[in-house]
Design a binder for these strands. Structure first.
Lengths: 191, 191
DNA sequence: GTCTATAATTCGATAGAC
DNA sequence: GTCTATCGAATTATAGAC
């Protein structure tokens, strides 16, 4: 621990516990039904502490719903395997991290959540797509098409829980969806 | 008007107005934030009438969220145009009908809404896919894959409102997505 | 830092007059 | 059929004691 690093406050553990409980509740119940009381109970602390640390329910959500796609640098992957790499990365990134599910559930009633999803897929993803050098004019559109398929996978698998989609293994999903993303990234319409 | 048809009650117009207002509110605000009071105000009637006609908020939602995909008989379309026909049908079916948006928004917090979406895409769509005779073992899976792409389109276009997806015309969407559905319906993974 | 008490709203649902 | 009045419950947020 260097001198420059902020001294670990005792409250840090409490803050982390609150965020963890918040992500779980927002992911399971959506924004409106996830109450501060329930989140505080999960974190074994008093509800007023949530307000003290995060100011409001909106502030708590904003802190709990930080999400980075952590996309790899697409300039490094062989161009014909772009689709496969991306599908597998999305699945790896989402399985086990409830933050995306929390964002998807909250997007229905919380404008801030919808805006954050737009940011993630219209900046993080667009930046990644731009890295392997398609013509700039189509970059945003290609990223949008990728979003329709990847968010659709997340929505049907984690929110709606459509049985055939839930039952497929990551490998099977990669095998089916990789060619789709590959075409959205490098192909042309109706080819 | 035949003798067998039920006599048109005066309340039918009121009931229809309530359902129309309910669909709008559920589609715009989601299940929790769409209040009976607001729906009644939109329909220019007293909130207690909503309870009288539909029993509860759940009952109102169940009545307002009836949705039929109205899929064409896929046995009638030429096999190589299945994807194109389907994408165009989905776009036609839900542009201008807010019921699907209401279902998607409500699915986040209302288990009944998620179940209805599962029904629609796991029975209506599966039945349609079965009609053109793929092997029965893969029918449910193919329908699930189609659901990931079509629900993903609806989610990004109508709920998240991702700009590049909102800006595409129906024709452009058909050109990009038709090959995807075509492969999910008739192709094999990673072909 | 932590907790109690409560303010201020808002909602779904009910009872009952007319 | 329609409306008024209201109940009971739940919520976010605040004030303030310790």
């Amino acid at each position: 621990m260097t001198a420059a690093a902020p001294r670990a406050r005792r409250s840090d553990a409490t803050r982390a516990a609150i965020l963890r409980a918040a992500r779980e509740r927002f992911a399971a119940d959506g924004y409106d039904r996830a109450t501060i009381r329930a989140i505080a109970a999960d974190a074994r602390i008093d509800p007023s502490m949530v307000m003290r640390y995060y100011g409001s329910k909106e502030g708590l959500f904003a802190a709990a719903a930080e999400f980075d796609l952590r996309l790899p640098d697409l300039a490094d992957v062989s161009p014909e395997r772009l689709g496969e790499i991306l599908v597998r990365h999305f699945l790896d990134r989402w399985e086990g991290d409830e933050t995306l599910a929390a964002l998807l559930r909250a997007a229905s009633t919380n404008p801030g959540a919808a805006e954050r999803i737009r940011d993630i897929f219209a900046s993080q993803l667009t930046d990644a797509v731009a890295r392997f050098g398609t013509d700039p004019a189509s970059t945003a559109r290609r990223a949008g098409l990728v979003a329709t398929q990847t968010l659709g996978l997340a929505f049907t698998r984690y929110i709606v829980r459509l049985p055939p989609v839930v039952d497929m293994t990551p490998d099977e999903l990669v095998a089916w969806l990789a060619p789709t993303l590959q075409r959205y990234l490098t192909g042309r319409p109706r080819e």
